[in-house]
Amino acid sequence: MTFGEQPAYLRVAGDLRQKIVEGSLPPHTRLPSQARIREEYGVSDTVALEARKVLMAEGLVEGRSGSGTYVRERPVPRRISRSGYRPSSGANLFRQEQAEQGARSTWASRSEQEAASAEIAARLDVEIGARVMRTRYVFRDGGEATMLSTSWEPLSVTGRTPVMLPEEGPLGGRGVVERMAAIDVIVDNVSEEVGARPGLAEELLALGGVPGHVVMVVERTYYASGRAVETADVVVLADRFRVAYHLPVK
Score class of each variant (00 low, 15 high):
residue 185 V to C: 07
residue 186 I to G: 00
residue 192 E to C: 13
residue 164 M to N: 03
residue 174 R to M: 12
residue 148 L to R: 00
residue 147 M to K: 06
residue 186 I to Q: 11
residue 189 N to P: 00
residue 180 M to Y: 09
residue 123 R to G: 05
residue 160 R to N: 14
residue 115 A to Y: 01
residue 144 E to W: 00
residue 191 S to Y: 06
residue 132 V to Q: 03
residue 140 R to E: 14
residue 137 Y to G: 01
residue 152 W to R: 01
residue 132 V to N: 02
residue 157 V to G: 01
residue 176 V to A: 12
residue 118 A to V: 08
residue 181 A to W: 11
residue 186 I to M: 06
residue 169 G to D: 02
residue 158 T to K: 10
residue 166 P to E: 01
residue 117 S to T: 15
residue 192 E to R: 15
residue 180 M to H: 11
residue 147 M to Q: 05
residue 185 V to Y: 04
residue 183 I to S: 13
residue 116 A to T: 10
residue 120 I to L: 08
residue 144 E to Y: 04
residue 193 E to M: 10
residue 160 R to S: 10
residue 169 G to S: 03
residue 134 R to D: 03
residue 178 E to Y: 07
residue 149 S to E: 14
residue 168 E to F: 12
residue 141 D to I: 05
residue 161 T to S: 15
residue 136 R to C: 10
residue 112 E to S: 15
residue 162 P to G: 06
residue 124 L to G: 04
residue 126 V to M: 06
residue 185 V to D: 04
residue 184 D to T: 06
residue 139 F to H: 14
residue 172 G to V: 11
residue 127 E to M: 07
residue 173 G to P: 06
residue 168 E to D: 14
residue 131 R to W: 06
residue 110 R to C: 05
residue 161 T to Q: 09
residue 161 T to Y: 05
residue 168 E to A: 15
residue 144 E to L: 11
residue 134 R to Q: 13
residue 134 R to P: 03
residue 115 A to M: 02
residue 126 V to R: 09
residue 163 V to G: 00
residue 174 R to T: 06
residue 141 D to N: 15
residue 151 S to C: 02
residue 125 D to E: 14
residue 165 L to R: 14
residue 134 R to V: 11
residue 130 A to Q: 04
residue 143 G to D: 02
residue 132 V to E: 03
residue 161 T to E: 03
residue 181 A to G: 15
residue 155 L to S: 07
residue 110 R to Q: 12
residue 175 G to I: 09
residue 120 I to N: 04
residue 160 R to Y: 04
residue 185 V to R: 09
